[in-house]
C-alpha cells in the first residue's frame, strides 16, 4: 500500500545529491550492474505492456507483491486522491481568513484538518498568489508533486519541455497556458525536491462574493494550484 511509502528511511539526500551512496551499495552495484544492464538492453524494445505484465507476474509468483494491494492502490490514486482535495483546501482558504492564515503558516496541519495527508505530502509549503507575486511549481529533476492534495501529476508537468523552460522563461510557459501576467507581476518559480512539496494558493476570482465553499472549489483547477493558470472565473449569472 502507499502507506509503506512513509516507512522507509529518509536520509538527507538533497535534489542535487541524488547519487550519494554508501560504500557497500557501490560494491553491490559493481557486482551486479553489468548483468542487469545487459538484460535490460536486450529486452528494451519488447513492447512495454508485455514487460510490465511479466514484472507483475514474476513478483506476484514470488510473493513480493499482493495482487489485491495492486488493485487497491490503483483505486486510491485513480479515484480517491486528486485535485478535488486541493480545491477544497483552497476554497476553505478563500472563504475563511483564519484558515488561510493557518494554511500559510502551518500547511501540514491545516491540510490534515480537512483529512488530506500521506505519501509525498509530508512537508507542504503553501504559496499565496497576489497582485504583485505569482508562484509556479516545477520539479526539474524528476516529478515531485504533492500527491495528497493534487493526486498524480499530469504528463506535461513531467515532460522535458516544462522542466527545462519553466525555470528559464516562466513568462512564456505561462502564456502557453493562456496566463498573461502584467510585466509588473513578479513570477517566482519553486523547484520541488524529495522532501518539500508546494501548493499554490491562487487569487480568489472577482465576482465570487456570494459563493459557498463548494461553488468556490469548482473554480479551483488543478493547473491553478500548480501555478500555470489562475483560478477559473464564475459563469456570468
Amino acid at each position: 500500500m502507499a502507506g509503506q511509502h512513509d516507512d522507509h528511511d529518509h536520509d538527507d539526500h538533497s535534489h542535487g545529491d541524488h547519487s550519494h551512496e554508501g560504500h557497500d551499495h557501490d560494491h553491490f552495484h559493481r557486482i551486479h550492474s553489468e548483468e542487469v544492464d545487459a538484460l535490460l538492453m536486450s529486452i528494451a524494445d519488447i513492447e512495454i505492456s508485455a514487460r510490465v505484465k511479466a514484472l507483475e507476474e514474476l513478483l506476484t509468483q514470488k510473493g513480493l507483491v499482493d495482487p489485491s494491494a495492486l488493485d487497491a492502490v490503483v483505486d486510491l490514486y485513480e479515484n480517491q486522491i486528486g485535485p478535488k482535495n486541493g480545491a477544497r483546501v483552497i476554497a476553505r482558504a478563500w472563504a475563511d481568513p483564519v484558515y488561510k492564515a493557518w494554511l500559510l503558516a502551518d500547511p501540514n496541519a491545516a491540510i490534515a484538518d480537512l483529512g488530506f495527508a500521506g505519501a509525498q505530502g509530508e512537508n507542504m509549503v503553501a504559496l499565496e498568489n497576489t497582485a504583485d507575486v505569482h508562484n509556479v511549481v516545477v520539479c526539474t529533476l524528476c516529478s515531485c508533486y504533492p500527491w495528497p492534495v493534487l493526486g498524480l501529476p499530469p504528463v506535461w508537468y513531467k515532460s522535458m519541455p516544462y522542466r527545462t523552460r519553466i525555470v528559464r522563461d516562466p513568462r512564456s510557459v505561462l502564456a502557453e497556458f493562456g496566463t498573461v501576467l502584467p510585466d509588473s507581476t513578479e513570477i517566482r518559480v519553486w523547484d520541488s525536491n524529495s522532501e518539500v512539496r508546494y501548493l499554490v494558493v491562487p487569487r480568489r476570482p472577482e465576482g465570487t462574493e456570494g459563493l459557498d465553499e463548494a461553488a468556490l472549489a469548482a473554480l479551483v483547477s488543478r493547473d491553478s494550484m500548480i501555478g500555470v493558470t489562475e483560478a477559473l472565473s464564475p459563469e456570468p449569472a
Binding site: M1, Q4, E56, L59, V65, D66, L70, V73, V74, Y77
Partner: peptide, 11 residues
C-alpha cells in the same frame, strides 16, 4: 499496472 507495482514495492 506499472504505477501500482511501484506503489506497492517502494518502501
Amino acid at each position: 499496472r506499472m504505477c501500482a507495482l511501484f506503489m506497492v514495492t517502494i518502501g
